[in-house]
């Protein structure tokens, strides 16, 4: 028993749907998620793969607590998760400086001393590959890759054990993508993090994740270790995704 790592997250039978009226007045029920279940363990990077419309972002919203209504249960075994969003342009408050943005979570943790906050922010900036010259910059003065580094810093500065990353590299250039993935992998080792890594790109998932869940139209079609999924996909849809990434 002691060999199995502790659970960080438990998702059981989560379903959600919305109803909409067709032009003829018929009520249609549209399933966004259908009976989704999985576990996430400590120190694990779990990939959640599917094309747009597969419900993966809705699932992420449910896990983060942004979805007001769903069926099933989602249990967290850690402090609240943090998140890195896809779009680095709306993830940072445009009216604030980097120091303020990174300082806010620290203020929420009760660190009132400005000097202590600044020291922590500086440490974190260096860890994500930036330096103190960024402190007084605003998001508009940063590149996409730099913004994503700040987003990661903002998520990590609360010292979470679990991070949801929603397509964190898909808005970036290929070279920057590699850098950010490398950073995420390094942070995982350093802080012993668990990731729920959402992506449409099998390739990206392969570089970071240990295990993969493949979703299609709100349903989990396949789940397994990354090598197994990549080398011997069972579901035709998974095969399609793997082929497309090669």
């Amino acid at each position: 028993m002691n060999d199995t790592p502790a659970k960080i997250l438990e998702v059981r039978n989560v379903s959600t749907s919305y109803t909409r009226k067709s032009p003829l007045g018929k009520v249609k029920i549209q399933h966004v998620l259908h009976d989704v279940s999985f576990d996430l363990y400590e120190g694990e990077a779990l990939g959640l793969v599917g094309e747009s419309g597969s419900g993966k972002t809705t699932l992420a919203r449910a896990i983060l607590g942004f979805l007001p209504k769903y069926e099933g249960t989602i249990r967290h075994f850690s402090e609240r998760p943090q998140v890195v969003f896809q779009d680095p342009y709306t993830a940072l408050n445009p009216a604030k400086t980097v120091e303020w943005i990174l300082g806010e979570p620290l203020r929420m943790l009760g660190i009132q001393d400005a000097q202590a906050r600044r020291q922590k922010i500086l440490d974190m900036l260096i860890k994500v590959g930036l330096d103190e010259s960024y402190l007084s910059r605003k998001p508009s003065q940063l590149s996409g890759g730099q913004r994503q580094r700040i987003s990661i810093a903002a998520a990590l500065i609360m010292e979470p054990r679990f991070i949801v990353a929603d397509e964190p590299v898909s808005a970036l250039d290929v070279t920057i993508q590699a850098q950010i993935l490398e950073l995420l992998a390094r942070m995982k080792e350093e802080f012993g993090l668990s990731y729920l890594f959402i992506s449409h790109d099998m390739n990206v998932v392969y570089q970071l994740c240990d295990r993969v869940i493949v979703m299609r139209k709100g349903v989990v079609v396949e789940e397994g270790d990354i090598d197994q999924i990549f080398d011997a996909p069972r579901h035709p849809y998974t095969r399609e995704l793997v082929e497309a990434s090669k």
Binding site: G65, N93, K96, P105, M108
Partner: peptide, 23 residues
């Protein structure tokens, strides 16, 4: 997203309205 982020960081609603959105 930055407002969602603030919620996750545990920023109280009043502060979100005043310090995060108002500026």
């Amino acid at each position: 997203n930055y407002v969602s982020l603030a919620k996750l960081q545990g920023v109280p609603t009043g502060r979100i309205l005043l310090r995060h959105i108002l500026p």
